[in-house]
Simulated scan of single mutants.
Amino acid sequence: MKKRLAIALMLGGSLFIKAQIGINMSAPEAVLHVDGQKNTVSATPASYYDDVVITSSGNMGAGTKSPKTRLDLRSNEHLNALGIGGTSQTASAAKAGAMRYNSGTQDLSYSDGSSWITLAHKAPNDFVDAENSSAQSFTSGTQTALTNWTKKTDVNGNFNAGTGVFVASKTGIYIVAFTFSLASGTIANDSRYETLIQTNSASSATNKVFKCVGSYPGTNSLSNRVAGGCSGIFNLNQGDNITVSLNQALGTAKTLDTDGSLTSLSIFGL
C-alpha cells in the first residue's frame, strides 16, 4: 500500500511540475497564461495584446506570449508605455538600479545605491497659440483680463482657455505677444486704451507688467474700430502666471470683434 502511494505521489508530482495554468482560456501556452478579454486565438499574434504570461524560464510578458526579458511589454498593438511613479524612498533603500519619476521637474532619476541621479533630458518648451472670438465686453475705465479663449496650440497644456491664465512649466525666458480688436463703435474725444501683460507670482521679484498705450487725441466724431497689441519678454520661475488685460477709456463699453483671428495671444518659452 505504501509503495502504491509513493508511486502515485511521484506521478502526481511530475504532473504538477509540468502543469500549465490558464485563466479565461482552456489551452494555456505558458506556465501561467491569463487572457484578459477571453479572445486569444492560437498562433495569431494580434490576439495576444491583452494577455499576460509567465514562462518556464521566469520571464513575464504583457501583450506577448514569448517574452525575451524578465519583463517584456512589446505587444503587437504597440501600446507599450511603462508607467513609473514617484517615491519617497531614499536611493539606498530603493537599491541601485531603481527608477522614479519626479513630477516637479518632469524628469526621471535612477538610484546608484546611494543617490538619486537625474537622467539627461529636455522637456518640450511651452508654446501657446490662442484666438478669441468671445465678444467679451469691457467697461470703460476698468482693467479686465481677457477670458474664454480658443486654443490652437498648447504644447504642455499649461494654458487655461476659460480664465486666460498661463502657468510656466519651468524656469526660463518667455516671449509674449498679444493683439486685440474691438467691434466698431464711437470713440470719445481725447480717449485712450492700455493693453497689459503681467505676471503673478509668489515671488515679488517676478511680478512685472508690460503696458502698451494707444490714444485718440482731439475730436473723434466718427464710429471706428479700435485695435492694438503689446509684447514683452519675461524671466519667469516655474509656476509663475501670465495674464493679458485691456483697460479701455473710449467713452462707452466695448466688445471684442467676433473675428477670432483679430484677437490673439502667443506665449513661447525659450
Rank of each mutant, 00 (worst) to 15 (best):
A145F: 04
T142H: 07
D107K: 08
N132W: 00
T118Y: 00
S137W: 10
Q106C: 09
S103E: 04
I117W: 15
S133G: 13
G141C: 10
R100N: 02
T144E: 00
D107R: 03
D154V: 02
A93H: 06
G141L: 07
L119N: 02
T144G: 11
G97R: 02
D126S: 01
A93K: 08
M99A: 06
T118W: 00
F127I: 07
L108K: 02
A94C: 10
T105E: 14
D129R: 11
T105M: 11
F138G: 00
A94N: 11
Y110N: 09
Q143R: 09
Q89H: 14
T147A: 11
P124F: 09
S114E: 14
L119V: 09
W116G: 04
A96C: 15
T147E: 06
T142P: 00
D107Y: 06
G97P: 03
L146K: 00
G157P: 04
D112C: 03
T118P: 08
H121D: 10
S92Q: 12
D107Q: 08
H121I: 09
G141T: 06
A145N: 11
L146T: 00
Y101L: 04
D129Q: 13
W116V: 07
W149Y: 10
A130T: 09
T153D: 15
L108W: 02
R100I: 10
G97K: 07
A123T: 11
A96W: 15
Q106R: 10
T147W: 01
P124Q: 07
A94W: 00
T153E: 12
A91G: 13
T90L: 10
R100K: 15
S109A: 13
G113W: 10
N148R: 14
S140A: 06
S115M: 13
F127D: 12
S109Q: 04
L108Y: 02
N156H: 01
F138C: 01
